[in-house]
């Protein structure tokens, strides 16, 4: 059985796709066979991996075609990492799904037949639509990236309300793995204050923060993952804390996930 992790936050620009791609490639580099599924019609996962966007998600979930997952995954060109791409056809897919009964279960059912992947990462769109709900229904775990600003923290609250709603109405197993603070800037008081605010609200669910790092933007523009573009960048390895030890960063987050999500 695969461990399915949804990366979601209703607010845009909080680092969902960067998180999804980096976690997926990080897990793949640790020898875990991983699939990343792009649920956003913008098809950004393919961009971040240096690929063209594609209609595989629409083919996978189309109620008429319903192609098996094995036919809809393509190699990312990286060892252990496959991808289900998305593009504009996902917009039509959402319309097609909206008329169906049990539409929220479409993704869970499709991924049920995805043998051979240890981890499946779902990169959600920044909106509450049928695919967003379907991701929460299909996932075992939810990671909520949030920029350290007042609006984004509220976005996490809204997301947890959605999750509670999904639990109540659809009896799913998805649990919060953690809230992931992104764009952490240890120099600014605002970033620090919002991190403290997040901790006050979510305590142990707050994952090690991801430092703000321009390398993340450069990497996506170059069509490379952070591991390929800047393997020693702050967003991966963290920043010095008291005592000079590096804390935070995606490497530490992946370590935490591997400790717990099995």
């Amino acid at each position: 059985m695969s461990v399915i992790i949804a990366i979601a936050n209703q607010k845009g620009g909080v680092g969902k796709t960067t998180t999804a791609v980096t976690l997926a490639h990080g897990l793949a580099l640790r020898g875990k066979r991983t699939l990343i599924v792009d649920l956003d019609s913008q098809g950004n996962v393919a961009d971040y991996l240096g690929m063209e966007s594609g209609p595989e998600l629409a083919r996978l979930l189309n109620p008429v075609l319903a192609e098996p997952v094995a036919k809809c995954t393509i190699s990312s060109g990286r060892e252990n990492l496959d991808v289900v791409r998305s593009d504009k056809t996902t917009v039509a897919l959402k319309t097609a799904l909206s008329g169906l009964d049990f539409r929220e279960f479409a993704l869970a059912e499709a991924l049920d037949k995805s043998d051979g992947y240890e981890y499946i990462i779902l990169d959600c769109a920044p909106s509450v639509d049928v695919l967003h709900t379907a991701a929460l229904v299909a996932a075992d775990w939810l990671i909520a990236p949030t920029q350290l600003s007042q609006g984004s923290v509220k976005g996490v609250r809204d997301l947890l309300v959605s999750l509670a709603d999904v639990h109540r109405k659809r009896r799913t197993v998805c649990q919060l793995a953690g809230v992931l603070p992104t764009f952490y800037d240890r120099v600014t008081g605002e970033s620090q204050g919002q991190l403290e605010n997040l901790v006050k609200n979510f305590r142990r669910f707050v994952l090690p923060p991801i430092p703000a790092d321009t390398k993340t933007r450069e990497a996506s523009r170059a069509g490379k993952t952070l591991f390929e573009y800047a393997p020693t960048c702050r967003a991966l390895v963290g920043v010095a804390s008291n005592g000079g030890r590096a804390e935070g960063g995606y490497n530490q987050v992946i370590d935490r996930l591997l400790e717990v999500l099995r």
Binding site: R203, R204, P208, A240
Partner: peptide, 25 residues
């Protein structure tokens, strides 16, 4: 998850370290 009942829960050590550094600064 009962979010109203997390006060005594330990923090992730990395988060704790970064917060204490930030508070010192």
């Amino acid at each position: 998850i009962d979010f109203s009942n997390l006060e005594d829960e330990p923090l992730d050590p990395a988060v704790e370290a970064l917060i204490s550094k930030g508070q010192r600064t």
